[in-house]
Write a protein that binds this DNA or RNA. Structure first.
Lengths: 345, 345
DNA sequence: GTGAAAGCGCTAACAT
DNA sequence: ATGTTAGCGCTTTCAC
């Protein structure tokens, strides 16, 4: 069984010939550009339909747009990111733009590879979700192609940002737990080495927010932070460490839902139960947190809304590359569920 | 604050001039093509490094390869798909190829949009995961660009396939439950309308495997199938229906883990518990099934291995487009966890 | 309003 | 072994 040969692609020349006009005319119709009469447009449209013509993005790239938006997600497993993606595609759905994603990239090296690949493929704009690259690198990217950074603080003239107020979000969780009567509230954070990123990354902000809120509530001495990573594995390790403490915390604020998943796993392994032995809260309000057997208290930062904003800002910047940069900050909301209760007496 | 202007891109001409050679020479070095002396190669390599040159994929697309592989995933939320993706990227990591994903697409229309977009962008090969498009459409795609179909049965001369033996997988689950003493074992399937797809889609195979296994075990009269969809919602609805039966099943085989999630949700809502009142098993062995509070019995179809195979086959087909098509079938394995126990006495 | 023609950055015949 | 050159499919001056 041999596969059939590839059919030749219909080009703009075929359309022009079929419609008895020039390729210029076809190009103008395609782009709704100025300088084509209604009759001309109709003629060309008909030829396009009859031949089933679609412009080759690669060829367009050499002269103009590719009508492609690249979205870089750090971790495809984190159920929060699809929310952002939905927002982006939702906003771009009615436009000619097509969204393409990079594969999940862990770390700076992979991130560079993916962003370079997107630039090399002539993408018209980039949405970078929680990038870990240096500021210089981000500004370089933004100087080459319109860019919106989602989920990372730090204003730059080169790119727009969309974030949620992570400090406030962390305070919501700590306030909720303290309100239930907890005092020994621990936090599992994503370990950060780079000082610049410390100031800009959401994980660092959440940790700061946690510390600040603990202090404000007079619980400064109970501050207990374990540094692992924002993955299920990281949550598992962090929880193991916390459960081994001589005096166990009564509540854990995991920096992300995916971290909380790992915590739940470790707690079950230790023969303990949530929330009877330990209250657990996450961040992101992913679809899994709502699941019956999980029912995780979490913070909703409305990823959909973030994605929508990112897409909107990107389209604006593609239209006018020199407009001043914009920073959008959304307010998080607490969603209390069954994984948090007053501490055991 | 105004963003800086875009720097001009380094081209092959710049490299050629800087290295004092022809652009042909540079092109040859880039592609490791025949006809360049070691000294020439060294000179060109140095110029490339000094100038930080990277070939523009869009320009390459017009003449040859883009070194881009497109992966289409039907639903970015289903935690099974990242496994496949890991396998693909793992296999392609050492090559020059870059993987780009389409946004999750539900339904035939979106699927067409994404595959067309990938073709228009000159991708060198496509991996289609559990596509729902018609057979004709798939063969058309494959005639235009090397294609591997993952998670859908049905051999075609035009494309390679990678699947797992869904019939055997379903039999593993039924055998496991029957071995525990269950007789009233129900199944929640994904509703299929199209007759061609009925034969090719994994969901249909699993339902067939369930029926066959029930018959083989002398449980033909207990066969009980509810048709919804492979989503959390579908599982929720299916479970509600089953729980309302005058004689409730003692075990439910959900066609996918994501379906089982919905079942767990519905069971909890009904004030029942798993596995005391009802045993539940899924399919896919996603990371969530291993989670402590869930601990779902499932079938591992090794998505990673599927992805690896898909990437390998794709590279082979890119090298030789007219080689006969290959079908790879992997064997599923049962992973028993705490969600399945003997039925209540 | 319309079309001829010059490229965009790269590859591949085809010389030399 | 190396360079010259003609395109790939499209957009965009710039004539008419």
């Amino acid at each position: 069984m041999k596969p059939p040969a590839a059919p030749r692609r219909v080009t703009i020349v075929d359309v022009a010939r079929h419609a008895q006009v020039s390729t210029t005319a076809v190009s103008k119709v395609l782009r709704n550009a100025y300088g084509a009469s209604p009759e001309m447009r109709a003629k060309v449209r008909r030829a396009i339909d009859e031949l089933g013509y679609r412009p080759l993005a690669a060829a367009r790239a050499l002269r103009g747009r590719t009508y492609t938006i690249g979205v870089m997600l750090p971790d495809i497993r984190n159920p929060f990111f699809p929310e952002i993606l939905d927002g982006v595609t939702g906003c771009l759905g009615d436009t000619e733009y097509q969204v393409l994603l990079g594969p999940g990239c862990n770390g700076e090296k992979e991130e560079t590879r993916v962003t370079e690949a997107m630039i090399d493929r002539g993408m018209d704009g980039l949405v970078l979700v929680a990038p870990v690259s240096s500021r210089v690198r981000l500004e370089h990217i933004a100087s080459v192609v319109p860019t919106v950074v989602v989920g990372r603080h730090g204003r730059s003239p080169a790119y727009d940002t969309v974030t949620n107020d992570d400090v406030a979000g962390a305070a919501l969780v700590v306030g909720h737990l303290a309100g239930l009567g907890h005092r020994r509230i621990a936090h599992i954070e994503h370990h950060e080495t780079d000082p610049t990123r410390s100031a800009e990354m959401p994980n660092a902000r959440r940790a700061d927010g946690y510390r600040q809120a603990m202090r404000d509530l007079g619980l400064a001495e109970e501050i207990d932070v374990v540094s692992t990573s924002y993955t299920q594995r990281g949550g598992h390790q962090g929880a193991q460490e916390l459960l081994a403490r001589p005096e166990r915390p009564t509540a854990v604020f995991a920096g992300a839902d995916i971290v909380a998943m790992g915590v739940l796993e470790a707690v079950a392994e230790a023969g303990l139960s949530v929330p009877d032995d330990l209250s657990v809260a996450g961040y992101d309000n992913t679809t899994f947190s709502a699941l019956g057997p999980i029912s995780l208290t979490s913070v909703d930062q409305s990823g959909r809304e973030m994605g929508r904003n990112a897409a909107r800002l990107l389209l604006e910047r593609i239209t006018d590359r020199s407009k001043p940069s914009v920073q959008v900050t959304l307010s998080p909301e607490l969603v209390a569920r069954r994984s948090t209760l007053p501490p055991p007496a």
